[in-house]
């Protein structure tokens, strides 16, 4: 799939934002009001910013409210509603906390729960795509949540939790890659089933329907070299999880270390998310001679 910046930013940032809300909601981080304000603002900025950037890849952003109507069937719709709801509830919780210094546990738990649900539904937008075998797996929600928790913990300075989450995430990410690499083959779709001609012999594309390109090829037939992908995976794994985990668990906590861990994790997060899209092969590629 075409790794569109808007979608990468959207999923990555909103993940972090709601991840923070989980921890703030669960009552972690006992700090003075002013600091609390900074963290809350940060969570909002990330979640809100992410959602905002998601509007950029719409053909008609001005109609975005319509996207809230189909919660019965559509994960994207659910994700929209939940994120708004979450930010609302968390908002009340935050206001009471910051301005009245009342931290209502129940409200926090609800906010945290909603955040998790939001992150989950974001992940399901991709996980539900049977047409993209690499995504169509339980690993997709697991990854999205772990990324959110790890990042959220880190940004809410939960050094230990963050550290262990990073380790868990590393394992999950590796498993996801390995499973993902075999997913297309396991999906059972190939040029034979795509054309119905498989029984007659080996099928190959002779001529595209047009000599130029088209929307489908631009959007869904993105090809990246194996070598290139491997390099990026190593970068993602090391900067995104290994380095932060080591920094957090092995070294004495401190602002400098924390900042380093955050920067490193962000780099890894974006690389991994770019790969999440770039490496995902859509079965429509079969009609254009891909694999």
């Amino acid at each position: 799939m075409h790794p569109a910046p808007s979608v990468i930013i959207f999923t990555a940032l909103s993940g972090l934002g709601f991840g923070m809300m989980v921890f703030l909601g669960l009552g972690y981080l006992n700090v003075v009001v002013l600091t609390a304000f900074v963290f809350v603002a940060m969570a909002y900025a990330l979640a809100g910013g992410g959602l905002l950037s998601s509007l950029f890849h719409l053909g008609h952003p001005e109609r975005f409210l319509k996207a809230l109507t189909q919660w019965r069937s559509s994960w994207l719709s659910r994700e929209g509603i939940l994120s708004i709801l979450t930010m609302g509830i968390f908002g009340i919780y935050a206001i009471l906390w910051i301005f009245m210094d009342m931290r209502i546990e129940l409200l926090g738990y609800i906010a945290a729960l909603l955040s998790i649900w939001t992150i989950f539904s974001t992940s399901m937008i991709y996980a539900q795509m049977k047409s993209v075998p690499r995504w169509n797996s339980a690993m997709t929600p697991i990854l999205f949540m772990l990324y959110a928790f790890a990042g959220g913990a880190l940004l809410t300075t939960q050094v230990n939790i963050a550290g262990w989450m990073m380790a868990a995430l590393a394992v999950a990410q590796i498993v996801a890659w390995l499973l993902g690499d075999g997913a297309f083959a396991k999906s059972g779709s190939d040029m034979g089933t795509a054309t119905g001609l498989g029984g007659l012999g080996k099928v190959r594309l002779l001529e595209k329907p047009h000599s130029g390109t088209n929307y489908l090829m631009k959007e869904m037939v993105y090809v990246i070299g194996r070598k290139h992908a491997l390099k990026l995976r190593i970068i993602a794994l090391s900067t995104g999880m290994v380095i932060p985990a080591v920094l957090l668990l092995a070294l004495p906590p401190g602002h400098m270390i924390g900042l380093l861990a955050i920067l490193s994790h962000m780099l890894g997060l974006f690389t991994a998310r770019w790969l999440f899209f770039a490496e995902a092969e859509h079965v429509v590629g079969l009609y254009y001679g891909q694999r």
Partner: peptide
């Protein structure tokens, strides 16, 4: 009603 999110095109296996 279409906001042009492209999700349906992603969901279609046939392009």
């Amino acid at each position: 009603n279409c906001i042009g999110c492209g999700l349906c095109a992603w969901a279609c296996p046939y392009g």
